[in-house]
Nucleic acid binder design. Structure first.
Lengths: 218, 218
DNA sequence: AATAATATTTAGACAAAACTAAAAATTTGT
DNA sequence: ACAAATTTTTAGTTTTGTCTAAATATTATT
């Protein structure tokens, strides 16, 4: 697969949210920052190659083969993200763009050894699961911290309220995007909770918990 | 620079052996495994871009700017080679092809952090020096083990005699390509020497020493 | 159900990087 | 120095991936 073909495969995969749903030409064009006519040309080619399933005016989906390729790209992307964050001290928001380039490197040995070097991680820095070599992986869902049951562990991936006072609060309590959070206990009465975050145990109010998004894998 | 342009720049650089000498169209074509006419087109383009200096029928050389680009590519290539060998357990002969892809990744932070992660190595697994961020580096030369003075340290990069008995000897004495060798002592009388190789000190005959190539940086 | 709005495809063109075949310049051999 | 051999360039094509503009199909509106 060429670089460009791989990018289209990934776009179709992500627009279909991992399900094998048809996606529209315009949706792909917007995601790829290209024109719909270019998309038509490319999905025809991908169809000829047995990667995609294209019906004029009806959108595209990936074939089994196409999904395999997509999952292998996702695996590579997420492993590189872990590498950049853990070994090269990149920050949470810097990893994506470089991983976008690294995912196209072609070498099975490279990715197997990278996986080993990183200790076979299960999720990337954004809390998304890393597909296995065979393409198996658990789904991840995003939930408010206030909505998960006691005992749940997840990765902090976003805030609902992004006002300066709230962000300042997070900073003061050393809660950052990318941190792993474990819910230790929930107080029925006021909805406050005890959480473990980076070796520390802290107590937070319900208001805080209703403004923090967690990504959890089932 | 595009991927293809970068490959041409590297080819011109290496054919000129790092010196800023003119190289012929045919030489570039052979190295790039392409046709001379394609080279003519490309070097014209590189000239227009201020990267190369092309005179019809007289060959090409790199401008100052072109040399900077070449050195940055060499730096990236060699750092990735060290990474593959030291962190991902690649072998001596597997690193080149993958590094050839990785060297095109565009991210200054990536390469700076990789350098740090590897402990700022001075040479790559083939004994070739790694240019600094600014493009400075020492020259490396290849010499027979028998010809270097006592106290010299270098990397074993090749054999003159590649007959099975000799290769078997090397294997038995645990001498492999990529190993660092330090010359401890030379015996005037028969030209035999004491060398340190991977924590072990061994004694080898002159015949052996005249068949092993070492790469040393001044 | 007819028309308007939107989405998609087709047709034709372009830039990058390669190729082939033929022409032109340079180098070599005598 | 001149013909032969070699090297290099030019001119014209091809492929990949993109674009614009025009045509066509689908969906929405009244």
């Amino acid at each position: 697969m060429t670089l460009s073909e791989e990018d289209y495969i990934k776009a179709i995969y992500h627009l279909g949210k991992g399900e094998n749903t048809r996606v529209s030409t315009n949706a792909v064009a917007e995601k790829m920052e290209t024109k719909p006519s270019s998309v038509t040309d490319m999905v025809k080619k991908l169809s000829d190659k047995g990667v995609a399933n294209y019906k004029p005016y009806k959108g595209v989906s990936l074939t089994e083969y196409g999904q395999k390729i997509a999952l292998s790209l996702v695996r590579k992307h997420r492993l590189w993200e872990v590498f950049l964050l853990e070994k090269l001290d990149f920050s949470w928001d810097e990893v994506h763009d470089v991983a976008e380039q690294l995912e196209h490197i072609k070498s099975d040995k490279l990715i197997d050894q990278l996986d080993k070097h990183l200790g076979f991680p299960q999720v990337d820095p954004h809390g998304d699961p890393i597909p296995s070599k065979k393409g198996e992986f658990k789904k991840a869902i995003k939930k408010l911290l206030s909505e998960v049951p006691t005992g749940t562990s997840g990765i902090c991936v976003g805030v609902k309220d992004s006002s300066p006072p709230f962000l300042k609060f997070l900073d003061k309590n050393k809660i950052a995007l990318g941190d792993t959070i474990l819910v230790l206990d929930k107080e029925e009465f006021d909805g406050s909770l005890d959480i473990k975050i980076k070796e520390n145990t802290i107590h937070i109010s319900n208001l805080i918990a209703t403004n923090l998004y967690l990504k959890i894998t089932e």
